[in-house]
Design a protein around this nucleic acid. Sequence first.
DNA 1: CGGCGACTTGAGGGACGTCAAGGGGCGTGG
DNA 2: CCACGCCCCTTGACGTCCCTCAAGTCGCCG
Lengths: 247, 247
Amino acid sequence: MRSGPNAVAMSTTFPELFDRFSAALLPAETPDATILRFRSIARAIRLDSHGHAEFDPKAEQLAFVCVGSAKLVARASGGREQVVSFHFAGELACVPGGALHAYSIEALTPCELLAFPVGEFLDLARSEPAILSEVCDRVMVALHRASEKSVALGRKTAQERVCSFLVGMTERIGVRQGNGFAMRLPMSRRDIADALGLTNETISRQFAELRMSGIIETSGRSLVTVPDIGSLRDLGGYMQLPERNAA
Amino acid sequence: MRSGPNAVAMSTTFPELFDRFSAALLPAETPDATILRFRSIARAIRLDSHGHAEFDPKAEQLAFVCVGSAKLVARASGGREQVVSFHFAGELACVPGGALHAYSIEALTPCELLAFPVGEFLDLARSEPAILSEVCDRVMVALHRASEKSVALGRKTAQERVCSFLVGMTERIGVRQGNGFAMRLPMSRRDIADALGLTNETISRQFAELRMSGIIETSGRSLVTVPDIGSLRDLGGYMQLPERNAA
DNA sequence: CGGCGACTTGAGGGACGTCAAGGGGCGTGG
DNA sequence: CCACGCCCCTTGACGTCCCTCAAGTCGCCG
């Protein structure tokens, strides 16, 4: 592992970081010996805002986000970047190894991670089925998000992609505000563009249109409020699910 | 689960199907009682070519492909289809549940599957860490493929997408032929288009260009030969990995 | 061998990218 | 606390790649 120029020393101690990981993924009955082995293969990564962590391209990693938020980025030829996923505190990111693109994790806000080589991690997890099960669940959630994202990237218009994105973010980090939701997006327009396969200009234009239609309101660069999540969902290009009425 | 109009009775018996699943995913030391429980939650699905299987949209499924090849399809509004992944015999497909798009599995060739409700499957797997570990590995492979695909859908030109696709297919189903590889693609141009976020016309045009440049040769509708996989990879828009020379 | 459907090829249009310039939020320093 | 300035965001004009629509050909199965 190699940290970028913005890697920086921060406040949280390693034991504190490990405790957050442990609380989220290791069941209470995990033997101390096993916990210690996990500790021994965990590497702390502390990133300032926009700091990045590169990994050995041949070795797949599991990265647990202890504090802050980050993006998993893939690089293609010609300096093109694709944001594969956004991750918030408490989530697990899978950084592929041996792939045809170069992956890295970049901090959206000051961010602290624990990185594990996936091979050793799974070897340890095998001794505790509950851990393996939890990891399996989380990886499947990531796979489902990736599948839903494929539909957006492959078949949706710019407006639908932006609306889908906002629906997803509202569900993940939105806080209730009256009848609607509000959220502070930690990522830039450019990050959103790189996640949706668009350009920052197109994101700006779509945001402007959504503002005009009253679908969203914005304040400053990062605060977005959604008065009616239903209207946003209607613009997301989703399949009309028959049980929508029943719900 | 609900099978489409092309679902059809075929030759392989349920025990034979289950044996293929068992050989691939259940370790030799699995207790008979556990194996029987897996049998009891497995549902056989036999599909004629182009037959499709719809599942309860709320219940996530794991589908093991015993025989043939299939595609996992997501549907968005307006009849738009996105092929999320292709699957060949011996592979495991995750069919999302509770999603905002409608998923189904459709046969590319006559195809036999075993479908498991994911909750019950993982409950059983928890008793055998080796099974959980194998499933976890396979899901992570699927996630990596999805991540690589995000880059293609989000940031690559039509030619790069087609070349990436052919590189991937060559690795999965190509057979050595002289210095190159040959393969019989079981999916139509339209299927490829739906997987790459393009149209069948664009696929045709890209195939034509690759034929002109001597990068590929085709014979009939489905046979493709790749004289030099390196040239194809060079056109895939991949990151130039530094260790490429070392390999 | 005949017909259907998938594939191919062409012409034209549209959604989003590219390039460019101006405005404003937000952090910094005085 | 306020002023400054960087950089992100916004907005406009134009270009382009791929989609759409259409017609014709060919492979594959009966």
